[in-house]
Design a protein around this nucleic acid. Structure first.
Lengths: 188, 188
DNA sequence: TCCGTTGATGTCATTACGTGACATCATTAT
DNA sequence: ATAATGATGTCACGTAATGACATCAACGGA
């Protein structure tokens, strides 16, 4: 038994999401989050670089999983096919996570510009990681960047659909449909 | 002759860019910007919603121009062709603007995560505007979102190339090359 | 068993962003 | 001549974020 309650980071995360849902992101002070978690604001900032990050740290895992999948894709696969493999891996990630939680989180993020900004830069970081990995596969610029960006475009559209109300299909199913549409659009 | 020096907004903008270049974005306080412009910090926040916005307000003009071009594209044009017309309009915008200034601004933005975030949300806002305009043209979802996102992907890649060192081609030329590459990639 | 180290947390002080409320005063309109 | 307008300043405040230092249970040797 430690000197403190264990799992401070998760307590902070839980407290934050609760409060964001109850009274909104802007109205929630870091001090209030920390208090609900039985800690102080100073400690909050030891776990999270800033107030927004409490909703986003963990994205490195998704990124790593997608980079791994991209690396392991068949050497003969085209750039877009390799990206598709990475998107499929993201699907496993999301369908494992419970969709109701993702919906709540998305709602909180959508309601606040600062949080939207943070989400966007996470996606950009992901795109850059995918670009680097494609280049390691021998894909030249600007193809690597374009394929990665197009993949993220599909990701964004599919994710928005996946969390939307009354959507029942799994993430992978939506991704595949979106990819097919993109191929068609580009060909027209 | 007015009570105050005229053109406070531009004075603030100029002072901000100077200081960002001289000592960096984070090291520059709003008070310092205002002082250099002969004003107070309170006045700065009357012109710009926050410190970052001083580098971005004006993006509405670009967005409006692209939306107009998209609206005016031939009714028979495909979604991607209509998007291409909007991108061409953006080209006029950028080649009119002086590229050296754009390069400095890009450098400042690239050096700071907060500014990158703001840039990303501006692009997303633009993407959403393009999506709405495509829908008015009769394009259904998810095609409208995908075409808009793909267009923004091309925009991002082309813009990065346009401001990169020793790039001589005009924006439109780069956009067209990128669009062609994307079509090829999607087809593979 | 004692003691020094470690590590998670707390306390305190400080800077800067951002905003509301109210004051100032040259310009403009009536 | 006077009142309304509008750009700016002043002041006070809350909150985010960070550095410096203090605390103190747990742990690992000697």
């Amino acid at each position: 038994m430690g000197r403190w309650e264990p799992d401070a980071e998760n307590r902070l995360r839980a407290a934050a999401i609760e409060l964001f849902g109850e009274i909104g992101y802007e109205q929630t002070t870091v001090a209030a989050i920390a208090e609900r978690a039985g800690l102080t604001a100073r400690t909050f900032f030891r776990y999270f670089a800033d107030k927004r990050e409490v909703l986003f740290n963990g994205s490195e895992h998704l990124q790593q999983a997608m980079v791994d999948a991209l690396t392991k894709a068949p050497a003969k696969a085209s750039a877009m096919d390799a990206i598709a493999a990475a998107l499929a891996k993201a699907g496993d990630f999301f369908d494992a996570d419970r969709r109701p939680f993702a919906r709540l989180r998305s709602k909180v993020i959508a309601a606040n510009p600062d949080l939207r900004e943070r989400e966007l830069i996470k996606l950009t970081t992901l795109s850059e990681a995918l670009t680097r990995t494609l280049r390691k596969r021998g894909v030249e610029e600007p193809d690597a960047s374009l394929a990665a960006e197009a993949g993220i475009a599909v990701f964004r559209v599919a994710f928005a659909q996946w969390v939307s109300k009354s959507e029942r299909r799994g993430f992978n199913e939506i991704v595949n449909a979106s990819l097919a549409r993109l191929r068609t659009l580009a060909a027209e």
